[in-house]
């Protein structure tokens, strides 16, 4: 599973996407957030972190599949 990165999270990881190893037990968006925070503790220091599944904001309880496009959404600052 690949996670698209933007803004500060791309700087934190030092790359435009994170590959989640196939044997990582991630069932939900909440599991993914926890895993990302463990891998990159700097993500936990952000004001907020959201996950988008197929370019829609997703709740922590939503299940994820490797067939979806998944993106990490740090605090937005458009406008």
């Amino acid at each position: 599973m690949e996670i698209l990165l933007f803004g500060i999270t791309r700087d934190i990881a030092g790359k435009p996407r994170i590959t989640v190893p196939a044997d990582t037990p991630l069932a939900t968006v909440g599991d993914l957030k926890t895993w990302l925070g463990d891998q990159y503790p700097a993500i936990k220091a952000l004001s907020s972190v959201a996950i988008a599944v197929d370019s829609e904001y997703a709740e922590d309880s939503q299940t994820i599949s490797s067939h979806s496009e998944i993106a990490l959404i740090p605090p937005v600052s458009g406008g």
Partner: peptide, 20 residues
């Protein structure tokens, strides 16, 4: 809500706005 991000560049550093 719209996923757009801005980075401000100053004379001595740069920062992603709202990140922290």
């Amino acid at each position: 809500t719209v996923p757009i991000w801005k980075k401000e560049f100053y004379e001595d550093n740069s920062v992603w706005v709202n990140a922290h």
